[in-house]
Design a binder for these strands. Structure first.
Length: 609
DNA sequence: GTAGGGTTAG
């Protein structure tokens, strides 16, 4: 600690007695009077010393034994002050204490507490600079930094800090590994995760540490490698409900509902009783595979355990499960019966109404949540706008748009921006849709897709094509959705060659494989234009032969152009897919009739040919 | 300083 001036020591001791009173008072007693008590302590310490620095100090003395021990106690108090600042996320107060620490050369003993303070307050760059400049060897501080980066959604920074830490000669321990695995999961860095997994195994850290094993399972699950995740889980020396939940959540997230539910059963078979977290993932699995009955069973289990009383996450998962299974009345009932509702519960229901075309219900729910004193979020707005678009309720949509603007929500939210543009576009207020797009500080391909789609929907194909050009001039590459719109636009305008040019450019220029919808659009246009041979060629090339609509498009063309041979051929393919399809049979019958063919070939004889 | 969970646009 070195030699400290006696006057300063005396001041420190004076502070110490006072600070201790505050620092050791139970938090509950502090909250009312000192909402910002850490700041108060910080500024008090600083001002006391500022006053003291004005005093002229003439003599310097070595510290006596008792003074030294009291000094140590003071450092402890400073650290306590920093801890209070950390807990209350009082960055301003913490900075003042930091200033004081620097001014008095007390950094070394306080370094760890300072780093933690900056991590907790989200000032991660400052924390990292402190660690680097002072070449900290504290593995716990480095781990705290890595955790901080991960929690704030900066997985890459977490990985970088992990490298920096090792560069400083600090070896990671179990806690660091657990933390960095989480970072790998968030950025899907499976290769890095695998390296860490190997190191953990080499160091024998898996034995007796369920948390680190769970973190490995979760890492693979979040990276989408469920086979590996399940394999690791099966080989772990010990596992618990959290390990299983990580795996089930992974399967549910990937839309592998069956697998998720079979793991859910395997877990129960091991004698582990599911908890709220497991139920959330199991419900998500049910929603993804339309398993309403299984979902209902889980719902009953949840009710038996009384878990819905105080768990909004679980309630949302339940509402969403019923919604995804199309059981909107049940979803609504779950929401209505909750002891308390939050905005996410409501948003899940509104999203379901909007997606399933129950737009009036979506709008009335939007009103109801506000009547309950809740405030819509970007997610709520996005779904509500979708319903406004479907109802062509431009006035209502505009009101919501203004509210979004008022709250400044459009600046960094692509999804919400797209929803606003799409609402105006669907309502036919295309100039407004375009203005919104132009005024946004960033533009993305889905916003353009919404605008272009609007032009197509309102029979303004020329303008759609113009937008398509403009978008690419701005350096934005079209995607699958954009091409659907553009091909449709060309189709409506009867621009056969343009349409085929765009269709061909998908693969060769943009690396996008045309899907069945694009191909159907092209086949339909070729067919209507009388290019039956090109339509057939495309149908054969694209191996979409199991899509009835494609054959229907081809048959319609044959009907129009009285091409009985190809028509019969298409009909055979079509009935092989669905022998009961009345539309196809009628079309074929009409074709025969129109061409004066007396003997209508029935389905059975067709399939036999 | 350490492990698992919710709603959105095109």
């Amino acid at each position: 600690m070195g030699v400290i001036r006696e006057r300063q020591i005396r001041a420190i001791l004076y502070c110490l007695d006072n600070c201790n009173i505050i620092a050791h008072t139970p938090r509950s007693a502090l909250t009312d009077r000192f909402t910002s008590h850490s700041l108060w302590i910080g500024s008090w310490v600083v001002s006391s010393f500022a006053a003291n620095d004005l005093c002229e100090v003439t003599d310097e003395q070595s510290l006596s034994r008792s003074t030294e021990s009291r000094f140590t106690a003071f450092i402890t108090t400073l650290i306590s002050t920093l801890k209070i600042c950390s807990k209350t996320k009082d960055l301003q107060g913490g900075r003042k204490v930091h200033e004081y620490i620097l001014k008095n050369g007390l950094l070394v003993p306080c370094l760890d507490a300072l780093v933690i303070l900056y991590v907790k307050c989200g000032a991660l760059a400052t924390a990292r600079d402190l660690l680097c400049v002072h070449k900290s060897k504290s593995v716990s501080c480095w781990t705290a930094l890595i955790t901080g980066y991960t929690q704030h959604g900066h997985g890459r920074e977490a990985l970088y800090s992990f490298e920096l830490m090792q560069h400083e000669g600090v070896s990671p321990d179990s806690l660091t590994f657990t933390s960095i695995l989480k970072a790998c999961g968030t950025v899907k860095a499976e290769v890095k995760g695998k390296q860490i997994h190997d190191k953990i195994v080499q160091q024998g850290l898996l034995d007796g540490d369920v948390k680190i094993g769970t973190a490995i399972v979760d890492m693979y699950a979040k990276c989408g490698n469920l086979i590996k995740a399940q394999h690791v889980l099966e080989e772990l020396p010990s596992r618990n409900i959290v390990t299983w939940s990580a795996l089930i959540a992974g399967y549910a997230e990937q839309g592998q509902g069956e697998k998720a539910l079979s793991c859910f059963e395997m877990m129960k078979h091991e004698g582990i009783v599911p908890n709220a977290v497991t139920f959330v993932s199991a419900l998500k699995a049910c929603g993804s595979i339309n398993a309403a009955e299984k979902g209902k069973q889980i719902h009953d289990e949840i009710t038996r355990q009384g878990l819905l009383r105080n768990n909004h996450v679980l309630a949302t998962a339940l509402i969403d499960m019923y919604a995804k299974c199309g059981a909107l009345k049940r979803a609504k009932r779950v929401l209505d019966e909750l002891p308390s509702r939050n905005v996410i519960n409501w948003s899940a229901l509104i999203a379901a109404y909007a997606q399933q075309g129950q737009d009036e219900q979506a709008l009335s729910s939007f009103e109801r949540l506000q009547d309950e004193g809740l405030s819509p979020t970007s997610v709520t707005f996005a779904s509500t706008l979708k319903s406004c678009g479907s109802l062509k309720a431009a006035e209502k949509g505009e009101k919501i748009h203004y509210e979004i603007e008022r709250r400044g929500l459009l600046h960094n939210d692509h999804i919400l921006g797209t929803a606003v543009i799409d609402m105006y576009a669907k309502c036919g207020v295309l100039s407004k849709a375009w203005t919104v797009l132009e005024e946004l500080p960033y533009q993305c391909v889905s916003m353009w897709a919404a605008l272009i789609g609007g032009f197509v929907q309102h029979d303004k194909g020329e303008q759609a094509l113009h937008c398509f050009k403009l978008m690419q001039q701005k350096g934005i590459s079209p995607n699958v959705a954009t091409f659907s719109c553009i091909l449709n636009a060309c189709s409506h305008l009867g621009l056969v060659e343009d349409c085929f040019r765009h269709y061909s450019s998908m693969r060769c220029k943009h690396g996008i494989d045309p899907d069945f919808e694009h191909t159907t659009c092209m086949v339909d246009l070729f067919g209507r234009a009388g290019h039956i041979d090109r339509a057939v060629k495309l149908t054969m090339e694209m191996s979409f032969s199991d899509y009835p609509i494609l054959w229907y498009a081809l048959m319609s063309a044959c009907h129009k152009w009285s091409n009985m041979n190809i028509g019969r051929w298409a009909f055979r393919h079509s009935v092989q897919l669905d022998a009961q399809d009345a539309g196809v049979c009628n079309l074929m019958a009409n074709m025969y009739k129109a061409n004066g063919v007396e003997s209508y070939v029935d389905i059975d004889s067709c399939t036999d040919q």
